[in-house]
């Protein structure tokens, strides 16, 4: 299952809930304000590094760029994708949940 999160982890608990209620082998895609979770020396990155042990994590590149998020500070393992990659992820997973 593909879990899509679009909220900053510093504003809402959507990412936390998506992690809590997703199974190993699922994928988490960060879009819009959720891309702030993917970079820097933060509690969110620490959580995502833990998540990466049994799940895939992706971040939408254009949203990182739009926000000036430091791509160099995105930890290894978090894959940066474009909109075509987003479509591929949706196709690759039998179901999709947006944690709105």
């Amino acid at each position: 299952m593909l879990h899509i999160v679009n909220k900053s982890p510093f504003e809402k608990n959507s990412l936390e809930t998506a992690v809590r209620l997703s199974q190993p082998d699922s994928a988490i895609l960060l879009i819009e304000d959720a891309v702030y979770a993917a970079s820097g020396d933060t509690s969110a990155v620490t959580m995502l590094k833990d998540v990466l042990r049994d799940r895939q994590v992706f971040a939408l590149g254009p949203d990182l760029q739009a926000r000036g998020v430091d791509v160099e500070k995105v930890p290894d393992g978090i894959e940066i994708i474009d909109y075509e990659g987003f479509v591929d992820l949706v196709v690759a997973h039998e179901s999709t949940q947006s944690w709105l």
Partner: peptide, 11 residues
């Protein structure tokens, strides 16, 4: 809940 969600076609 995670298991229930994973078994859905549409969420």
């Amino acid at each position: 809940v995670a298991e229930l969600l994973a078994g859905q076609d549409i969420v």
